[in-house]
Design a binder for these strands. Structure first.
Lengths: 114, 114
DNA sequence: AAAGGATACCTTGATTATCTATGTATAATA
DNA sequence: TATTATACATAGATAATCAAGGTATCCTTT
């Protein structure tokens, strides 16, 4: 990810699940899609993405299949979300909501200090 | 932090700077304050906090002093934010804003896929 | 008086997410 | 012909956090 430091750790799997949940995609396309949707805030690199895809598949959140491109003969590995993945995504979104709301509360100092 | 997984990685330093920016505090108090302000979402453990405090001090974002408590004789190490720390906090808040907004965009799918 | 829990500091070693670098290969462009 | 973009992948390094352990004092309950 481009966003400096370690801020995005932990959310990358959710981001990947999220974009795949809208349409079957291959790895390189995921990178470009996330880049575009985040307006270049997230610039995932391949060394990050591929291990995540493999892990998500191992957990049965995704399935994959090889597809030969029609324009060029290039092979692409398409990933599709599973039912289990859809549930996991919903759970992770909920957790993200809880987390980001909590950060907001601390940053804005809604409550008083002890 | 209590929030499961690794979601909060990278934001802990900012959280600490943020609570200290409102008043001088000692370590244990920081943990309790963050717990309260986040409504128990963040349950920082000591093994996380103390190394962070030392690192922030080393970077001159904080200064510390030992204070003997008046109620009981217990010694506490109070941390105070510096000018440099205030600037750093502002920068990290800005980054958090960019990051969380980007996550929101990807999750809600504001734009279309390629 | 003893025991346990809360307070208060700290460090070490393990875990894990991500990055950097590297590798392979093809297609399109300059 | 050389470079860039596409497309997959892995290995080793880095770094944030956690789990566990250590020391010590104070307060409350038994």
């Amino acid at each position: 990810m481009k966003i400096s430091k370690e801020l995005s750790k932990g959310s990358t799997g959710m981001i990947v699940l999220s974009v795949i949940s809208r349409s079957e995609m291959y790895g390189y396309q995921i990178i470009k899609t996330v880049e575009m949707m985040s307006e270049n805030v997230f610039q995932m690199n391949e060394g990050t993405l591929y291990p995540i895809l493999h892990a998500l598949e191992k957990e049965d959140y995704l399935t994959s299949r090889w597809v030969e491109s029609e324009e060029n003969g290039r092979k692409r590995k398409y990933y599709k979300i599973t039912e289990k993945g859809i549930k996991e995504l919903a759970s992770q979104k909920q957790e993200w909501e809880t987390y980001s709301t909590a950060v907001g509360k601390v940053l804005t100092g809604e409550l008083q200090t002890i």
